[in-house]
Design a binder for these strands. Structure first.
Lengths: 137, 137
DNA sequence: TTGAATGCAAAAAATTTGCATATTG
DNA sequence: CAATATGCAAATTTTTTGCATTCAA
């Protein structure tokens, strides 16, 4: 991804092998917590990367819009590539299962808050909590 | 709220003064992190309550459906009374401002995922990230 | 009475930060 | 070269847990 290097360079940041591996890890995993990213990075054959570098790398990449994060469950920020397929997560409060639906399901909702508040919502990886068919109260 | 005592009792749990004060704190604050709840509880005139009790109390109340929580920002679970007015939070990634819109704005969205996945979404206090009018990219 | 809850204190997790050193551009 | 990142270790912050004691029902 020369593209990635370009994005970083454009902001005076640098593409280091660690950052490249973080992006590769996310490409491979889809979603992952900082800890999960570190594990995947450590499993890619190269030397392990300290968590502090993972955190700083994710922070840098997020500030440039390359990755973003959401909170799928209680205490766990999960990161993903911003370009990753748009979808909304349906998190069941009963069994904890996480289902996904295309982000397009929220189109009307997004348009509505844009019209009423001028707010541009990013429903990519939006986490919606509730109950799945089996746990429906 | 004798009602509260009843809910707890119905599950073999007890209504302690600490729990009552936690609920009062949330009633007063609307939303708050465990830390914020502790601060408010400590400011209500009574003796301070250790964080561990706050955590265990919120956990117990949440398991009974009295309170629920969401993640409005990066690392901070915010709790609120489940009966608290339904609204969706619009969290700006630019300036961090948090706006609110009635949960009814998501009616069509909720119906759609209910129809397609049988998922009963609870959009109360749903946190939608994006950019407010001023920070729109 | 009697099991659920509290209070402390200590243990775990999860993040962040300081700094000397290594690297990218 | 010069400024940005990394690695490590140490410091924070946040949340959880063990247990003797207290208290609600």
């Amino acid at each position: 991804m020369t593209d990635l290097a370009a994005v970083l360079r454009a902001h005076g940041r640098r593409l280091t092998p660690q950052r490249r591996r973080i992006v590769e890890a996310l490409t491979h995993l889809g979603h992952a917590t900082p800890d999960g990213v570190a594990a995947q990075v450590g499993a890619d054959g190269g030397p392990s990367v300290p968590l502090s570098t993972i955190y700083r790398g994710l922070e840098a990449l997020e500030s440039l819009g390359v990755v973003s994060h959401t909170h799928l469950d209680h205490r766990a920020p999960t990161y993903h590539l911003t370009g990753h397929a748009d979808h909304v997560h349906l998190v069941c409060r009963g069994c904890g299962t996480i289902d996904e639906v295309p982000a397009s399901a929220a189109t009307e909702f997004v348009a509505r808050i844009s019209a009423s508040r001028g707010f541009t919502a990013d429903v990519t990886h939006l986490a919606v909590h509730g109950w799945c068919a089996g746990c429906r109260p």
